[in-house]
Design a protein around this nucleic acid. Structure first.
Lengths: 82, 82
DNA sequence: TTTCATTTGTCCGTATGTATT
DNA sequence: AAATACATACGGACAAATGAA
């Protein structure tokens, strides 16, 4: 997966889409931590704000949840055990 | 040496320049520890991130090396004895 | 052995200024 | 004007290793 800096889709949404795909494919498991903002900065060569936006977008979509000072994690599905 | 918070040169580079000057003048000797991040925070009244950036900048310039949980030290010159 | 302070590593939250589109 | 992106700077918190007491 590569980032298109010139296309119509904002970079942060492209990154969010990649992570969302990893969640849906099971590559990123429920309650497991997703890559940190710094990881995303490194991996995709973007600014931290862009990485933060990508994570914020996933949060808005209800795919992940963030624990301050801990990280961002994949939300468990509805029927999952507590 | 005072920090100019409003000038063109970023604060972290000003601090890096001060330390670089201390190294070149011999005030900070090879293999000796440079001031810790906390020291720089105290001394120049900056955030830790800014202090960390200054050190990172010196590292990129090859002037110092960092040992985790130990500190950052002045790099010995080429011809120095091991 | 245990405790404690120090130090760097790694997180996250926020803000401002600038540039580009 | 507004959205996107980058650079800089400040703040707080916890983790982990080291070394000294």
């Amino acid at each position: 997966m590569t980032i298109d800096h010139d296309g119509d889709t904002p970079v942060y949404r492209q990154i969010a889409a990649i992570i969302a795909e990893r969640i849906e494919s099971g590559d990123l498991q429920p309650r497991r931590r997703i890559p940190s903002e710094s990881d995303l900065v490194q991996e995709y060569g973007v600014a931290r704000e862009t990485a933060r936006r990508a994570v914020a977008y996933l949060r808005e979509q209800g795919l992940v949840y963030t624990v301050p000072q801990r990280g961002t994690f994949v939300k468990p599905s509805e029927g999952d055990v507590e």
